[in-house]
């Protein structure tokens, strides 16, 4: 809800909007209309799980142990959701500990590898999106067909995620500007309407 307000949707209108927030710990897919959440799917797969996937992949494929922070950096530098990007990022040098010798070492990774290792988690998010669309009342489905899907949260900055969701759903997918702060902005607006927004929970 806060995310929807943050990207400038008038949530009190009788039109449906679908917002996907991929944060650090949870991904949430919600359909919003008339100042309320019509249906929502919340799955506990998000940024942290992407990091864990990358850590595991590095361990299995390259025999290199890396920490959570390095995994996060890899995700930011070369993270991708699809194998073919129009403007691919440069290779990134990963530093960590060699599991066989125990000696620190560095290797290069590119975005296609990361896309493969994130594939499983992203498919789960895709499945959740499809599930949410399935459970949407038909009148709101019609609205969503027109307005498309809005993506917010740090996870939406993953390269090619919007394209991947577009290919899966055939709907237009918009990534919010400054997706990291969209939710905070919305919360700020809610603060100004402290008494007006009835959907705030006491």
């Amino acid at each position: 809800m806060a995310a929807a307000i943050g990207i400038g949707i008038d949530v009190l209108e009788p039109t449906g909007n679908m917002v996907i927030d991929i944060g650090g710990g949870t991904s949430e897919i919600a359909v919003i209309a008339l100042g309320g959440i019509v249906n929502n799917t919340s799955i506990r797969i998000a940024g942290d799980d992407f990091n864990a996937d990358i850590e595991e992949y590095m361990r299995k494929e390259h025999n290199i142990n890396i920490g959570e922070r390095t995994a996060e950096r890899i995700k930011i530098e070369v993270g991708a959701a699809i194998d073919e990007l129009d403007n691919p990022p440069d290779e990134y040098e990963v530093l960590g500990r060699d599991m066989l010798t125990g000696i620190p070492k560095g290797i290069k990774v590119n975005y296609t590898e990361i896309a493969q290792c994130l594939d499983k988690s992203i498919s789960k998010i895709e499945a959740a999106v499809l599930n949410a669309l399935e459970n949407t009342p038909p009148e709101l489905s019609a609205d969503i067909y027109r307005t498309g899907i809005y993506l917010v949260g740090g996870g939406s900055m993953l390269r090619g995620l919007d394209k991947r969701l577009h290919l899966k759903t055939k709907l237009s997918v918009h990534v919010a500007e400054d997706p990291l702060r969209a939710v905070a902005r919305g919360t700020g607006i809610a603060l100004k309407n402290f008494d007006k927004f009835t959907f705030l929970i006491k």
């Binding site: 740090g154 905070a184 700020g188 402290f194």
Partner: peptide, 26 residues
């Protein structure tokens, strides 16, 4: 004082007087 908080798993953001005043990892 009125403040808005986005308490996130990764980052916590605080808005005060319409401005982002705190944006820190949690």
């Amino acid at each position: 004082k009125e403040i808005a908080i986005d308490l996130g798993t990764a980052n916590t953001i605080i808005i005060f007087n319409d401005k982002v005043v705190v944006d820190e990892p949690s």
